[in-house]
Design a protein around this nucleic acid. Structure first.
Lengths: 348, 348
DNA sequence: ATGAAAGCGCTAACAG
DNA sequence: CTGTTAGCGCTTTCAT
């Protein structure tokens, strides 16, 4: 494949009758190179189409200046904004990032982790897949003391820095909001309780019910994978419940949207008959009719904080100890899908 | 950062009193190694936690077995399925992929191209950003004869393999469908005509109008960037038009969804007053009410074809010549948002 | 079937 | 301010 041989620093050195070391130093902006020499070298490099050889450099420096990022999915605005946050901070600090997505499969997550380890990333940022239980695939990182930062979906017990929101509080507030709207039979749709994000919200949900003297039975908690098919099924099940739900808190906007649609198709009014709250403030929450009340948290900020923490550890700035879990703000955004009070006033 | 020194093939060789060359051969499944020796080596490698050093290997082989993929955005199901198609083929052929996203900015696209070139990807797969005009950032690839495959949003004039759908035909059919539904004043919302995907659909749109004797004026063609704000603006403009549109073809599902919403808010019925067709079959097309008629094309297939073509060139299998543009199928999916005929029959 | 030796391109002591 | 030198870990002739 290779056309002509690549230009190396030796070619530059020969042409200028200087040593390769000087060329290397000039190209890397080391100090102690005469400005004039540096310029001559840089000019020639451009002229000859020189490109530095990463492998050689990495091999020598034992460092790649690359951060691996493993996400559970790509097609959500939340993840995209996390990525752009990471990218911004990483680029500023002169790190490249490589992205792997697990498609919610722990097997692919594991493959990505292995691949990135093999590629010798300097550090790793990850959000766990839906079904990840064993964390063995991260052991090589721990063993080699390669810094590891988890965000959003973090492991329950493990070292490493974690960047999260207060999911308990978010779940609590979402539920309390529904209660304030007069809901008495509030159901909750969530996903694998192995994932902190879901488990914590469930706790918040339960505690809010309990605080306001509302009964809770396991029948009100529905676990699904938020896929389209599963969501449709869940919605159908909800419609057929003995005790009709008048409030619904869903840990995912897409699934909440599907439910709203199903409810409407079944002749139920939202929020009149059933008030709905989602989670994530995805675009879909503003498209669905009625617009969806949801919990917003800033992906970009989460990405920035994660990247910054990672780079700090990379630079030996240790901020660990009791502060190795960083909690960011989240807020309930109230839209039409849950506003029963105002709706009553506005009613025809 | 590095803890203990990494295990190298020399460590393995020493332990077994054989040469590093033999270890290397065994690890890479070269022929001419006694089965027993191979097994001893592999076992010890696992036991000692050996991981091969990519840089050293790449440096030596002048090859990375990595394919770079540059996409204009990540948060669409279309792109995600393209990526999974690429991933599948690449993995099978023993290539890693690294993903870069340009966020629709030619500047970032250029940065990614440079970065990947620097990382010495063996080949590149790309879909152009919204505002890319100059292709100079791909020149290094052409110069070094690094295979380059464009998909979906491809450059107008340039060498390299291109994988596309017949956008002209898709635009033609979408428009003809609206005409068949009795629409007389069909507007078209599109984006930068520098992008083949949009320009070609516009041609199809115009030709369909002309074929059916419908007048066209530039007033009916609206160019926007499909962002949320821009889409809202465009929708408002459309509502205020002198000549009321009764049909709308939008080159993007998200924008089409926003328009439908705005129309409904303004008291217009969809499709009764205005029939709408989108493009891409994004999830949103099934969430919006009424469900959106749209053009579907298979991202996964496009990804697979792109990756396969790239790997073929990598292996020296030249399929270029007149076949260097590969056109895949696309189909109009008819849903409620455009069905005026049936709607009239069903009318109360 | 295995070993010896050279070199991929770069960087960092160390020297001057 | 610049040059000399050694070596990062691996693959691959060329021998044996």
């Amino acid at each position: 494949m290779a056309e002509k041989r690549d230009i190396t620093i030796y070619d530059l050195a020969d042409k200028l009758n200087i040593s390769a070391a000087t060329v290397s130093r000039a190209l890397n902006n080391h100090q102690g190179i005469k400005e004039k020499t540096r310029k001559r070298i840089n000019d020639l490099a451009v002229e000859m189409g020189y490109r530095s050889n990463n492998f050689a450099s990495n091999l020598r420096r034992q460092k790649t200046n690359t951060i691996g990022v493993i996400v559970h999915e790509l097609n959500s605005t939340f993840i995209t904004s996390v990525l752009s946050g990471i990218e911004k901070v990483a680029t500023t600090a002169n790190y490249d990032i490589i992205i792997g997505h697990s498609a919610e499969s722990s097997i692919k997550e594991s493959a990505n982790a292995g691949n990135f380890f093999h590629k010798r990333v300097d550090g790793l940022i990850a959000s766990l897949a839906y079904d990840t239980e064993q964390l063995a695939h991260f052991d090589p990182y721990f063993n080699k003391k390669i810094p590891l930062v988890f965000f959003d979906r973090v492991p329950k017990n493990s070292s490493g820095i974690k960047v999260v929101i207060d999911n308990y509080k978010a779940g609590f507030e979402a539920t309390e909001h529904l209660i304030a709207q007069g809901c008495q039979h509030i159901y909750h749709i969530t996903a694998s309780l192995n994932r902190n994000v879901y488990a914590d919200r469930v706790e918040g949900y339960k505690d809010a019910l309990s605080k306001h003297g509302l009964a809770y039975s396991d029948d009100q908690l529905i676990i699904t994978d938020f896929g389209e098919a599963a969501s449709l099924e869940v919605a159908a099940k909800l419609i057929d419940k003995e005790i009709k739900p008048d409030g619904l808190f869903v840990s995912n906007d897409f699934c909440a949207a599907i439910c709203i649609q199903s409810f409407k198709d079944a002749g139920l009014r939202v929020p009149g008959d059933i008030a709905v709250v989602g989670f994530n403030n995805d675009v879909i929450s503003k498209i669905i009719e009625p617009k969806l009340t949801t919990v917003n948290y800033c992906g970009r900020e989460m990405g920035e904080v994660a990247a910054r923490s990672l780079i700090n550890s990379l630079n030996g700035i240790v901020t660990t100890g009791h502060t190795d879990t960083i909690t960011l703000k989240a807020e309930l955004i109230i839209r039409a899908s849950s506003q029963r009070i105002r709706l009553k006033n506005e009613a025809i």
